[in-house]
């Protein structure tokens, strides 16, 4: 209850401040929209049907890009984490690729795949892939040696050691990586769609700018923020469910 009242309170303060700045700043509506203006813009987007379509397109792209990242990142992470010798060769390459913003790949991606769904999907994939890969590799390195001794003792062989022991043992750490990657990927979805797509929330931003509709621009931004928050809550819920199923008490992890 206390938490909910704080959330409402926080937003109330923000909206009031926004309104006051608008009221006393005498800004042009096209440069700085009022809260009511944004609500109006939001309604307009809804009645035109563009917003729902754009959200749908963005979500589909996000789902595809993120899922490929999760599957590939965890699988490769488990294998490379297990075969440390190979990781020794791959790690330097990853460390060079990782700091490159996914956006830097965009010209190539557009040249290779054209405009449409694929650039955004690839951008999301790149954004999410490295955090997932790295957290998985490091988690494999930190697996309790006792588990490995037990696996050996009970005659458990590869690939069962990876699926039965390593994957579940590393899951809490991998889940943290998944959570991190989700946030990063969502940020880059919008960036990817601003350049490489003709639909989606990122395109909506660009479209609003081109039409000088600051109210719609702000509305789209708010939608992006709220959806990001929803996705984050969703994965947190999933994370906690899996912790419970794994029998791990989530204490400090859920505190953030």
């Amino acid at each position: 209850m206390k938490k909910i009242s704080r959330i409402i309170g926080g937003f109330a303060i923000m909206i009031i401040t926004w309104q006051l700045i608008f009221q006393f700043g005498h800004y042009n509506q096209a440069l700085f929209p009022s809260p009511q203006g944004v609500v109006k813009g939001f309604k307009e987007l809804m009645t035109q049907g563009v917003l729902v379509d754009d959200i749908y397109d963005s979500m589909i792209r996000f789902l595809i890009g993120y899922s490929i990242s999760v599957v590939l990142g965890i699988t490769l992470g488990l294998i490379l984490g297990w075969f440390r010798g190979i990781w020794g060769f791959i790690n330097p390459i990853v460390q060079v690729l990782r700091p490159i913003s996914p956006m830097a790949w965009l010209p190539f991606i557009v040249l290779w795949f054209g405009i449409g769904d694929i650039p955004a999907i690839v951008i999301i994939f790149i954004a999410a892939f490295f955090p997932i890969l790295l957290s998985t590799v490091s988690a494999v390195g930190n697996v309790d040696q006792t588990y490995l001794k037990i696996a050996k003792n009970f005659g458990i062989k590869q690939p069962q050691i990876l699926t039965k022991i390593i994957l579940p043992a590393t899951f809490p750490n991998i889940a943290t990586g998944l959570h991190l990657a989700l946030g990063t990927a969502w940020v880059f979805l919008v960036a990817g769609e601003m350049v490489g797509a003709q639909t989606g929330l990122g395109f909506l931003i660009i479209d609003a700018r081109n039409n000088l509709r600051a109210d719609m621009l702000m509305a789209a931004m708010i939608v992006i923020g709220v959806l990001g928050l929803l996705l984050d809550s969703l994965i947190r819920l999933l994370e906690q469910r899996i912790y419970k199923r794994w029998g791990i008490v989530a204490n400090e992890r859920s505190a953030s």
Binding site: Y147, K149, K152, N153, F154, G155, G247, I248
Partner: peptide, 21 residues
């Protein structure tokens, strides 16, 4: 030469897999 399922070790910290019942 290597551990065998015929000789099982029980560890001080039990070595139970926490994700299994």
């Amino acid at each position: 030469k290597e551990p065998s399922i015929k000789n099982v070790t029980i560890f001080q910290n039990y070595g139970l897999l926490p994700w299994r019942t």
